[in-house]
């Protein structure tokens, strides 16, 4: 083992990673269903993570040097591994229960308007609810509501759906050259806003749509709004002077309904794209077509079970996850 490598064991699987790697990224190197869900962390955005608390795991052994377990569950996205560390994710009932608690709490003020939401089918929160959620909410109060606002003519904000992951704020800070939107107010009154209705006007501003884990920021140019699982994603590229030009086109029949960045298996964009590619190139002739996009197995689009409300398939058989999903199986009506 070289000096800058450390060994970490997650749910019984050992992996050797660079010193300084977070537990979450170590788990992503292992892959499969031991990867904790991440709603706020985004590997391409500096400073992201730590907020949603869905990625919490149990550190049952701190390190070879100091084997004491950590007293509390930790956010795997912001905790770096130590040599000899042992981590439990889906093998710890405590983690599964706490995560179910986080999911329940994340959903208490969420409108659950999936049937009319553009994001349905590619929403991280929807997936999360399916995999880790409770049967029904115990929240009996009115949900928080905000007015829908248009941020310029390209992007729409449905604040009701926002989970305050801060990804769009970091994106605007780090990808565009001037941020005009941010988080206003505090506590559960916090909202993403521009204060005055101001267009987010910048070459790369459209990327906030792709990083948003829920349907809070959506593409106003999405033509003939459609359920994503009725659309067919295809990878394509063009010679773009501003960005890499590598995108996914979402087709219905012969029409390009919208253009997004390509996403990796963890739902993160591979490369940020510019607004011209995203909003203005909506005909097949603008693009060189590559191949149908491979969709992550955990996505509702792939599962194709959205209508029948079955739990999502897991990649490898896993008893713990089955157990955690049992409640889902017993579900009769989702909302």
């Amino acid at each position: 083992m070289s000096d800058n490598k450390v060994k970490v064991t997650i749910d019984g699987i050992t992996v050797e990673v660079e010193n300084g790697t977070t537990i979450l990224n170590a788990a992503r190197q292992i892959g499969g269903d031991i990867v904790p869900p991440a709603m706020c962390y985004y590997s391409k955005l500096k400073g992201s993570g730590g907020k949603c608390r869905t990625c919490i795991v149990k550190v049952s052994k701190g390190s070879e040097k100091d084997p004491r377990p950590m007293p509390k569950l930790v956010a795997s996205c912001r905790t770096t591994v130590m040599d000899g560390m042992e981590v439990q994710n889906i093998t710890s009932p405590e983690v599964l229960e706490a995560r179910a608690g986080v999911v329940e709490i994340l959903l208490i003020n969420h409108p659950l308007d999936c049937p009319i939401c553009d994001q349905a089918g590619e929403c991280d929160l929807q997936d999360l609810g399916y995999e880790h959620g409770l049967q029904k909410t115990r929240y009996e109060f009115e949900r928080r509501t905000f007015e829908r606002i248009d941020i310029g003519d390209k992007i729409q904000l449905h604040m009701n759906r926002c989970i305050l992951c801060y990804r769009c704020v970091y994106t605007a800070d780090q990808i565009t050259d001037s941020r005009v939107h941010g988080v206003l107010n505090r506590g559960d009154h916090s909202e993403i806003s521009t204060y005055i209705e101001q267009a987010i006007d910048n070459d790369f501003s459209g990327n906030v749509i792709d990083v948003c884990p829920v349907g809070a920021l959506t593409d106003r140019t999405f033509r003939f709004k459609n359920r994503v699982w009725f659309t067919k994603p295809v990878d394509a590229h063009r010679n773009c002077p501003t960005c890499s030009g590598k995108v996914t086109l979402w087709y219905k029949g012969p029409d390009v309904l919208r253009v997004t960045a390509r996403k990796d298996q963890f739902g993160e964009v591979e490369e940020f794209i510019c607004n011209t590619c995203r909003f203005e190139k909506k005909s097949t002739s603008d693009w060189a077509i590559e191949e149908p996009t491979r969709i992550s197995d955990t996505s509702v689009i792939a599962a194709n079970h959205y209508e029948t409300l079955r739990p999502l398939p897991v990649i490898r058989p896993n008893e713990e996850l089955r157990e955690a999903n049992k409640k889902e199986l017993e579900k009769t009506v989702k909302y």
Partner: peptide, 8 residues
């Protein structure tokens, strides 16, 4: 600084 930083 940017106006949004003040509003925030």
């Amino acid at each position: 600084i940017r106006p949004i930083e003040v509003y925030e």
